[in-house]
Amino acid sequence: MIELKNISITLNDNVILDDVTLSIEMGMNTIILGPSGAGKSSILKIILGLWKPDNGEIIFEGKNVCKMTDDEILQLRKKVGIVFQGNALFDSLTVAENILYFLPDKKKLSENEPKYKIEELLSFVNLSGTENLYPEELSGGMKKRVAIARALAFNPQVILFDEPTTGLDPINTESVLELIEKLKQNGTTSVIVTHILDDAIEVGDNFIVINEGKIVEAGSLEKILRSKNPFVKEFFKRFIEENHNPFIRISKEVNK
């Protein structure tokens, strides 16, 4: 379990997170929902140790991430992968080089091992044959899948997704969501930051709703939908309305 206890962080006099406490169960897909600028992505950066909170602690495998040494942080980052919102692929490197760049202990691998590893990862994300392409030659959805393949190179226990489907067309969105489900079946824990309700509901097991740096609701979808919190009610309004609309509900069921 990953636990965040009383996390607060302020950047340039702006409160980013205010006394945030949450827990992420292993082997499940946890969704962090909220509007833009609510502090969702900050949670991911804090979990990875990229940002240090002003107060509070992050517990991963019984250890406080804030008090970890540089070496311990490096070990943590081999267990926790991340897929950035903009993918963060290196423009000057090919798909294979982007994946290989972070492959741990490259020197210890035999001659053909990196090649097989790249083939295996690209096959997992349905991008076989794209090894020698550059990021600029890929579509948005393909870039996202390369970013996922890169995050998987370490065989991490946890993958953090920052807005994985934002800006993607429905087909690419579906393929990314399928990959997240596939990862769950393989036992990988996913933490998904998003503001897209449909996608969140499709893959989510647990939900955390955040607004203006504060957790406003957390739990299962049923618990969230029954929430009396005005912000949560407003945020889920469209989803609830659509599911009460027989045409939309039938259309969704037919599509499934």
């Binding site: 903009g86 972070f102 890169r150």
Partner: peptide, 13 residues
């Protein structure tokens, strides 16, 4: 700006 520096740090480089 494109989070590549964060990516380097996130993947242990």
């Amino acid at each position: 700006l494109s989070e590549q520096i964060d990516a380097l740090r996130a993947f242990g480089a």
